[in-house]
Design a protein around this nucleic acid. Structure first.
Lengths: 249, 249
DNA sequence: AAGTGGTCTAGACCACCAT
DNA sequence: TGGTGGTCTAGACCACTTA
């Protein structure tokens, strides 16, 4: 019915793109697990009957996307959301002096409910489906700075309990990965300035009507599927949101 | 005096990194100008006596940094800040429906003054050096949404005039590039929520004390030298700041 | 010493663009 | 038709890690 010969849509994709697809499958199916090494480049070249250069080009893409990590002499590993490694990749709130400090997360509430229309759209589920709602209070250097509201599709996290969020050794995305095999790979964020709602202001110890920075995030997985909806409210009296556009020199 | 054999500091840099340095020089010196094609890969390989694969790897880096642009069949070109190409790379304010609209820039004021301590530090000049200060009002779809305050080191932009900012066919970074040979390559931004100052609120048609999004940007050039200090105040009633973390799939 | 990723080569062939 | 970038190969050698 449609014209499949239009330019920009080659009928045969490049070989290395096909390898990227195969690797994404291996990652999504759990054949290659977070933290583990994938087979050596020479072995992959043999397995797929291609040149080692082609394998390297495919791996390059997944390394650039922060999904694989190369370590010379050791191997190539599937990325994990450890506190030291990936936290600051997604966490962009810093003190105004720029130093990076680890947030301490305190669970405020954990409930289940039904997705409203907007939530369902963003999570690629149906309006009325069960969602898990979590509110966290994040402290930086001892002070309450951020209120996080998370919304998750319950179906994607079967058997999730409040306890998992209460005593957690690592990051929240590490919990998703370890306990549910769900890997957050990238996020889209929208920021705006608002006046704080009373409950948020109270948690942050701010006066009513104080300006707060609101961040609405969608976290996406390996296949670009939506995983988490997050609204963060930040007290930017002494903290800022940091962003770089364009790679380092 | 110092130990130069410490790990992570190889004595001989990879060949392709050396090529990257040579290319940055050619760009910085004006041998390769914005909009023009650089020599073909085969010619560069001959010129430097290396394999074409090594040249490609070096070009890859500058393409990833948005400094060069490959076009199959045509050549490799030096990036320009045209309205359609680079504007939305650095301009991240969008209507809440997500559509991208071109800002209309109105010059509010153009003055010269002396750099204070903080400005001098960020611009890598000396406190008291002459700076150019520009205030712009940006309209999106006819409404005033953003107030921009720019600070530039006068020495870097000799003979800059108010007129250049008043009737401008393209973007401000395009002006820097065309009229002064200064290319903005990347930016660092810090965002926070504040209450609007009276003059800013007036320009944006907001009530006193309304919350606004403040963006403090440092724009950096080819050699990572600071070029421009910019403070943007955004009315985020119906607009948002958009950011993506992690590449597209 | 063995195994890994990192660099570099010298070519072949293809897809695309201009003329 | 000739020139460009894009893909792919089959190796060699190096740097690094681990045992």
């Amino acid at each position: 019915m449609t014209d499949t010969t239009s330019p920009g849509v080659p009928l045969t994709a490049p070989l290395y793109k096909e390898l990227v697809r195969q690797m994404r499958d291996a990652l999504g199916s759990g054949e290659w697990k977070p933290g583990e090494a994938i087979p050596a480049e020479r072995r992959l070249a043999d397995r797929w009957g291609v040149s080692i250069g082609t394998v390297r080009k495919a791996i390059d893409e997944l390394v650039a996307a922060n999904i694989l990590i190369r370590q010379q002499g050791r191997g190539t590993f599937v990325a994990t959301h450890t506190r030291d490694r990936m936290l600051f990749y997604f966490f962009h709130v810093v003190p105004e002096d720029g130093a990076k400090v680890y947030p301490v997360v305190r669970l405020v509430s954990f409930t289940r409910g039904k997705a409203d229309r907007g939530e369902a759209d963003h999570l690629a589920i149906v309006s009325g489906d069960t969602v898990v709602r979590i509110r966290n209070l994040l402290e930086l250097a001892g002070d309450p700075i951020i209120v996080d509201d998370l919304v998750l599709a319950a179906a994607r996290f079967p058997g999730m309990t409040e306890r998992q969020f209460r005593d957690r050794p690592s990051t929240i995305y590490n919990l998703y990965q370890d306990a549910f095999g769900v890997s957050v790979v990238r996020t889209k964020e929208r920021l705006r300035a608002r006046t704080a709602e009373p409950d948020v202001a109270a948690l942050l110890g701010m006066p009513r009507g104080a300006p707060i920075l609101e961040i609405r995030r969608i976290a996406l997985g390996l296949a670009d599927e939506p995983i988490e909806l997050r609204t963060s409210r930040v007290n930017t009296q002494h903290h800022e949101y940091y962003a770089e556009i364009g790679g380092a020199p």
